[in-house]
Design a protein around this nucleic acid. Sequence first.
RNA 1: UCGCAUCGCAUGCUAUCGCUGGCUCAAGGGCGGUUUUCUUGUGAAAUUGACCCGAUGGGCGAGAGGAAAGUCCGGACAGUGUAGAGCGACCACACCACCUAACUGGUGGGACUUUGUGUAAUGCGAAGGACAGCGAGUGCCAUAGAAAAUUUCCUUUUCCGCCUUUUUUAUAGGCGGGAAUGAGGGUGAGAACCCGACUAAUGGUCGGGCUGUUUUCUGGUGACGGGAAACAGGGGCAAACCUUGUGGGCUGAAAGCUCAAAUAGGCUAAGAGGCUCAGUAUUAUUUAUAUGCUGGGCGACCUGCUGCUCGCAGGUUCUUGGUGGGUAGAGCGUUAGAGGCGUAUGGCGACAUGCGUACUAGAUAAAUGAUAGCACCGGGUGAAAUUUUUAAAGUAGCUCGGACAGAAUUCGGCUUAUCGCGAUGCGGUUUU
RNA 2: GAUCCUGUAGCUCAGCUGGUAGAGCAUAUCACUUUUAAUGAUAGGGUCCUGGGUUCGAGCCCCAGCGGGAUCA
Length: 136
Amino acid sequence: MQRMHTLNKYERLKSKKLIERLFKEGNRFSVFPFKVVVLAGSFENSSSPVQFGISVPNKVVPKAVNRNRIKRQVREAWRQNKLSLYEQLQKTETSADGQVIQLCVMLIFTSKKACTFDFIQRKLRKVIFQLGEHYG
RNA sequence: UCGCAUCGCAUGCUAUCGCUGGCUCAAGGGCGGUUUUCUUGUGAAAUUGACCCGAUGGGCGAGAGGAAAGUCCGGACAGUGUAGAGCGACCACACCACCUAACUGGUGGGACUUUGUGUAAUGCGAAGGACAGCGAGUGCCAUAGAAAAUUUCCUUUUCCGCCUUUUUUAUAGGCGGGAAUGAGGGUGAGAACCCGACUAAUGGUCGGGCUGUUUUCUGGUGACGGGAAACAGGGGCAAACCUUGUGGGCUGAAAGCUCAAAUAGGCUAAGAGGCUCAGUAUUAUUUAUAUGCUGGGCGACCUGCUGCUCGCAGGUUCUUGGUGGGUAGAGCGUUAGAGGCGUAUGGCGACAUGCGUACUAGAUAAAUGAUAGCACCGGGUGAAAUUUUUAAAGUAGCUCGGACAGAAUUCGGCUUAUCGCGAUGCGGUUUU
RNA sequence: GAUCCUGUAGCUCAGCUGGUAGAGCAUAUCACUUUUAAUGAUAGGGUCCUGGGUUCGAGCCCCAGCGGGAUCA
């Protein structure tokens, strides 16, 4: 765990197949501006503990500029706050029988209004806390 | 100071933390070569390479728009196909000349309509438009009106017949029939081109004007403008069907090309394969038996012929190997271009040509940023010190705002959205 | 990226090749009923998505825009 505040290719959810599987089999819960879909298991295409994706529906935010901005803000917040989740996952890995647990997380943004960065960050911390409770 | 038109710009800097792809250095791994060592096995270690990978760490430089948008046109490119060949259908366009790779784009011009202004008069300026054809055909023109298009309802003119009045004829009136005509008839968006003279009449003739066609002279590359003669008077609608002319093959990067796992299915090769009868061949041979081939019947399943039954026709299973197609996925297409900037020449202009110059966005659940601070620009409000007629100053400060909008193969246009700023030109108002 | 359809009353839809914009449900009032529902009668309610154009006259024809929806791996 040298550099934590990064978000490179292999920490992002990119495989179309995996996303389809995630939506078919994953568990769902929601924290107000987000709907979260999670799938636990071990995936071969990446060594990262968590693969993360954000989706903003076209119907909720009609303009592409605003959609991009929300995605960037959420990605930024995730980047800065994912550290605690990673630590919890590593703890369980070492204490249990060495089975690697990886998570796929997809956030769906559902608020129609634009939010400030602070608000998004607070809510995202709550999401990460809940993920840690369930899988950590 | 306000408005219009055209052109240009589209807030910047710093700090912290990040993203994408490129080059490069270094760890690390793979592969190959060489050497050493031993317990001789394709083991271990070391070293090396214009080699490959590289999710790790440095360094360097790059990274959204004028509309990236809408997807409304036209290309490039790709596939199909032979189609920079014809015909038909369908679609698009339509004054002229030019520009362009091309266009429904652009530039310049012509006629028309509207409008402003001015003159004795011709004029001058601005704006507008899909400005071929209804003097080919078909269709439509509600209500109103006689009639909405080779007019015929009334009135009018004239001729014939009958009746009435009258001594009779004539005249006058009425009725019926024939002919002529389009002057008049509440209308309507639109009414048979308009005015005058002659006459039975409104016809016809003559004169003048308007419009159109043909011929001709003239200016212009041309649309068209100016004049003369003859003929004609046929209302509007083609953003009604349509006619004429011109152009277009169709499909779009989710195009398309290459590599390619598992499963299922296709084709093909080999092997095995329900019961029974007949014929035939081989082995063996006295028969019988075994195997192969051909044909028939029976049984099971599927499909079709009519929904069901009968009947008829066709087909059939398993194992292994090969093969081509091809899905998930990956790569290419994929970023340098009919391009930008400067300058010279030609052209009224769109633009063309020559020379010089600088380049490099390339993502794919989709990068090009997030947070904070400062500056800058614009609007509103609005001091004080100081000097003092007044200026300082619409300054400082406070406050609000900084738009529209995010590449997705690419280029040229069009359209739409847009806080503002600057330049040029034209016009208005105020002051000097 | 490409292609296509659609917009009319509060809702669902008609409106033929242009000539005074309609139906059903809903709403309001009245009648019926002890009351409600159902039923009957009456009434109100329209930017025909927006802006231009053609025409004497556009819901309809043409152009541009805005909104909604669908299809193509």
